[in-house]
Amino acid sequence: MTEKTTTDDLIAKLSAEPAPAPTASPEAMLLRRMALGFGGTLVLFFTLLGPRPQLGLAMTDPVVLAKTALPFVLALLALPLALNAARPAAPRGWQAQAIWVLPMAALSLFMLAYATHAPADRLRLFVGHSIPVCMPAIVTLSLPVTAALISILRRGAPLNPPVCGALAGLVAGGLATTVYSTFCTEDSPLFYSVWYSLGIAMAAGVGAWAGRRWLTW
């Protein structure tokens, strides 16, 4: 039984080092890396876009505030989900249900705006004037945060790397959209609940790809 002995040898070797390094867990580096990633997003934002004029005034309208607040809450809820996805057999947490409130809220805002606008205005507001800026900007702004999160989650053990990566992308997309929304002057949910959502979905797609590439272990 030589094989038996080598397994025993391995166990003896491993048990010489029982305690993991204090910085081993994904959470240990979370704040520092996220600050770095989000810092990168802010640098990109102020270099390429910058806030709209009279941002504070615009934000007093709850419908305008929603386009900043909803993606931020999305990011807050997706973050623990991404971290849990990197721990085998960890319970998913209440956020897994709560996060569905956000697409439902976006859909409700869309329907409300649809119902309260004249048919002639609906298409104009829906198409807007900045789709070619909006979605590439959201994806671009999300990249530093996605990179930061993937580098953290690599310390974990995601059983489904693409899903874990997609959740990281969702966090990044949410934060990127939060920032982007302070530049964007398209204030109708007919625009933002569709195109922001698509931008966030694309960021999640990038995360899923990155997860498949870098989160396998």
């Binding site: 491993l14 081993a24 867990s25 085998p88 057999a89 974990g156 272990w217």
Partner: peptide, 24 residues
């Protein structure tokens, strides 16, 4: 065994250990 060792910090000590071990 090497994977369990490398990822032992991903177990939350307030959770049952068997599902974690089997998953890995």
């Amino acid at each position: 065994l090497l994977a369990v060792h490398a990822k032992r910090h991903t177990w939350r000590s307030d959770q049952p250990v068997s599902p974690w071990l089997y998953a890995i």
